[in-house]
Structures are given as structure tokens and as C-alpha cells.
Design a protein around this nucleic acid. Sequence first.
DNA 1: CATTGTTTTGAACGAATGTTCAGTTAATTA
DNA 2: TAATTAACTGAACATTCGTTCAAAACAATG
Lengths: 198, 198
Amino acid sequence: MARTTGSHAEQTGPRIRAAALTLFARHGFAAVSMRQIAAEVGVQVGALYNYTPDKQSLLFELMRSHLEGLLEACVVPTNLAPQDQLAWFTRFHIRYHHARPEEVFIAYMELRNLAPDNFARIEALRGCYEKKLEDIIVSGCSTGAFNTRDTKIATLAVIAMLTGITTWFRPGGRLSLEDIQSQYVQMVQRLFVPDPRP
Amino acid sequence: MARTTGSHAEQTGPRIRAAALTLFARHGFAAVSMRQIAAEVGVQVGALYNYTPDKQSLLFELMRSHLEGLLEACVVPTNLAPQDQLAWFTRFHIRYHHARPEEVFIAYMELRNLAPDNFARIEALRGCYEKKLEDIIVSGCSTGAFNTRDTKIATLAVIAMLTGITTWFRPGGRLSLEDIQSQYVQMVQRLFVPDPRP
DNA sequence: CATTGTTTTGAACGAATGTTCAGTTAATTA
DNA sequence: TAATTAACTGAACATTCGTTCAAAACAATG
């Protein structure tokens, strides 16, 4: 036997990436074999190599497309005041990441398994995303709406805080996604409120 | 050849754990072979099995000892006011984790590779640590010193924010460890300051 | 229906994996 | 010094790994 009924490249390609996404997220890149991915798709190992030059590229492509989608979707409304831009970013981040738990997990956990060139490209994309938040913070500081000692650290603190949500949030839990968004908006905004002068 | 000059169990055991720690942190559990660990120690593969029943136990032991050390060291001074307890915890967390980057990295990245029983034990230990912080937050809320919508979420937000430091902080950088501690103390405390009523 | 081009199979490659163990050597004890 | 114990070697085990490729089977075209 060889080519099976109803085989199409347009279907197999995405299905391979979907299977890799799920398996990498669940077990980790290094712990997943090409044969497991093929089995998930319902295909033999060799067929995978019509769609990716190697395993490493499969991982890189998943990360790249996730981060480029993130950057494309994250268009900060510059007409808003800094406080509202910050609230918008917070809500955007939580919603976007919550809808893609597997992509997020991989993008933050499998950096080690990228070849140096690929690593640099992914880091650059992540840097672009962080810059969008930092720009909001910087502009808030320049108008006096925000107060913080170091905008770079504040940026990283906010990102870490928001990204941490994906490690514990499960749908159907105690709190709705809206509850979480509004509480995080409050917490993030508080980070930049000047201390009261007694 | 067999037993080499100067071979002692008291030395080899710790050296194996140290090598595993470094290699797991650098390349990930699944990507490191027992032969690599043995080579790092300067020993043959078989010798490792005098010190660990298998590779999985090696990982578990690293995580367990890290978290138990963390719990043992984290004794919150209950005589302080909640604000000061929170500041103490923030400084403690940053300092303790900064001194052990490899342990921290493994404890947060390799949970997937734990067998179910081991995973449950590690999660329980981590829960104990988070509880120490939550107790501070709860006590602050009960005295009115703190304000927050949900203590559980606030706890996880603070932990995520603090733990995120290890992903970017490198010694010799722009900021000293003391700078970082004091800025994070400020940010964490701000998280619990009630919003101004106009 | 015959031909062409695409997609998949199935088997194979060498290398690497975790683990076991009989045998060998160094250190310790008597 | 001789006997015993502890530590390690070196080789082997059966699997599994990522990757390659000729051959086979299907879909599309004329």
C-alpha cells in the first residue's frame, strides 16, 4: 500500500502542525518523536518530511507563526490615555493567550530547543511584543500619569504576571475570564500609581 | 580497569546530582542522556545506577530537595506588620531564587517530565510555598492594610511576577540585585494599596 | 483510458537511548 | 599480608531515534 484515499497536501500540512502543537505542548519537544506525530495524523513517518525539512523547523515554525499572529493582533489604540492603553493591553494579552494555551506554552518553554539562529529570530519577535507594552509605560511616565522606577523592569514584571495566568487558569473554574481580566487590569494599573505622600 | 583511584561514594553522589542539575537546566531533562551526565562526572554510565534507581528519580530528587530547601529557608517573621512581611517575602524570594538559577529553572520547566506520583508530591510542596505568601496577603486584608479582590489570584500574580525575574536577570547587568529587590518591593506593595477615593 | 505528477508507504540506515550485570580494581578490615 | 567489601568498568541488551528513498498508489489531466 502507499498513497491512501483522500490524501491532500492542503489537509496534511496543517494537521501535522496541529499534532505537533498538541504533542509538544503536552510532553515537550525533546520527548516527542516524529513517529508519534505521524501516528497522531494517521500517516507514516516518512510523509512528514514532505512538509518540514526536519523536526527543528517544525518547532520553529510553530513559535514563529504564534508570535507573528500575536504581533499582528496587538494594535494598541493610541488615541486612548495611557491608563486605558494599559488596560487594553492587559485585556488583550489575557484574552489572546487564553485562546491559545498550547502555542503559549511552547513559545515559553521550548526556547532551549531552538537552534541559535532560530532562537535569535524568536527572541526578536518577543522583544517587539514587549516593546509595545514598554511604549505604553514610557508614554504614561512622560505625561505624569504613571510612576515607576525603571520602565524596562516594570515591563518585564507585567508580562511575567500576565503570562503566569496560563499556568493555572482552567475554564470552568472559580472565576470567569472576565473576572480575571478586570482583576488584572486593577493590579496592573496599581503598579504605576505614585505612592501617596503623607 | 574498574574502580579508579580516589573514588568515594560520598563524592560521586553529589557530583552526579550537580552534573544532572547543570545539564538538565541547560538542555532539558529529555534532551540529556545518562551518558552525558556520566561523562560530566568522569565516570561510566553504569556507575550512575549505584546512586539513583533511574533517570526519573534523579530529576525528582533535584526538584524535591530544592523545594524543601526553599520551604525550610522561608520562615516569615510574624512579628512584622503585613506590609513588612510582604516586603520581607519579596526580598527573600528574589535572593533565594537568584542564588539557585539552575534549580529554579528545572523546578518550573520540567514538571511535565515527572511521573504522576512525583508530580503530585512536587505540586504539594509548591503549594506550601504559595500558602506562605497567601497567608501574608490574607492577614493584611483582614487588618485593612491591604486591599485586593481575590487573595488567591493576587498570590499567583505576585509569584509569577517574582519568578519571572530569573528568566532575564544576569549578574553584572545594568541593575544590582539590591536595585531589583527594592523596585520589586515597591511594585508588590503597590498591588495591595487601595485605590484612591476621589 | 492512458499518462503525468503528487502523495504516501514501508523498509532501511546508523546512531543513540535507558538499563543491567558479570567481572575487575581500589580501599578497608582483620 | 590476606580476605572482604565497596566502587566502578566495559560490554551488552532490546528499543527507539531522526532521516532517507525507491517503489507503490492515488488524483488530475488530456
